[in-house]
């Protein structure tokens, strides 16, 4: 009994090590491979912000205060979501070498890949905090309420993981889920208040911030990181509920369809 629990603890610590190792390698593969190297990870959100800024501020003259920061936080959260969903549809195919020859738990593959995206998000978030508090002219300043970003991140992580599980499991049996999700994610992007006011969005599409979980997360992230106000708790609970519900579905699908990946892909 004693020996067993010790052995369990040892093997579980190996599991954490392995997930972290895979995440690091994934992160390196994603960015270091590039000629611009790690710099690319920093340039990407800035160019994104720049494009939207030119369109909506310079051309369309939007009146959102601190618009660059507004865009910045919306886009980095959205990019994380997109990277972890669209970017992982083929994960069971690209990472086949990990489970094809052993009884490795597939969940570890998902978690490590999302963790590597989280490293990127972490750097981007630091850039955002720096930008918002030191470069942007009128700010609410740093405060304890900023810490609410952590549960929001956990929410986003679970949601992305859940959708990643669902999409990649379906991919085994229906390859065109890639295209279907592409269309769906474009809809989600435009139906989230990323580059327009959340109030506009909420009045034009009432209750839609409750239907679109990624919208709710972005709205709440701006509240705690920029506006210096509390979370919208009902929205937060809704989004967390979505994430957990999807996660349940994702786990079921992984168990049912994903387990056949080795023979079907």
């Amino acid at each position: 009994m004693g020996v067993n629990t010790v052995r369990e603890r040892v093997s579980s610590s190996n599991k954490l090590e392995r997930i972290w190792l895979l995440a690091k390698i994934e992160y390196k593969l994603r960015y270091y491979e590039n000629r611009l190297g790690l710099l690319w990870a920093l340039i990407k959100p800035i160019t994104d912000v720049l494009i939207f800024y030119v369109v909506f501020k310079t051309i369309l003259k939007t009146d959102i205060p601190a618009f660059a920061s507004y865009l910045f936080i919306g886009l980095i959260l959205w990019n994380f979501f997109l990277e972890s969903t669209s970017g992982t549809i083929q994960i069971l195919y690209t990472k086949k070498y990990l489970y094809e020859y052993s009884n490795m738990n597939k969940m570890e593959i998902y978690i490590s890949t999302l963790l590597s995206s989280s490293i990127g998000l972490f750097f981007n978030m630091i850039m955002f905090i720096f930008f918002y508090n030191f470069i942007e002219s009128s700010t609410a300043g740093l405060g304890v309420h900023n810490l609410w970003i952590i549960p929001l991140f956990i929410n986003l992580f679970i949601l992305s993981l859940a959708l990643s599980l669902i999409l990649s499991s379906i991919y085994i049996f229906a390859k065109d889920i890639t295209q279907i999700w592409q269309v769906f994610s474009i809809a989600l992007f435009y139906l989230s208040p990323i580059f327009y006011r959340s109030e506009l969005f909420q009045t034009a599409l009432p209750a839609f911030d409750y239907l679109n979980p990624i919208a709710g997360i972005i709205i709440n992230a701006r509240r705690v990181m920029m506006q210096g106000v509390q979370l919208d708790f009902s929205l937060f609970l809704f989004d967390f509920g979505y994430a957990l519900l999807f996660l349940l579905g994702g786990l079921l699908l992984l168990n049912k369809l994903g387990s056949k990946a080795a023979e079907k892909l």
Partner: peptide, 15 residues
């Protein structure tokens, strides 16, 4: 190098 670490870890070894 990376493959050795990944495979070793999958096989249950610690870093």
């Amino acid at each position: 190098r990376e493959n050795i670490y990944v495979s070793g870890s999958v096989l249950g070894l610690k870093i």
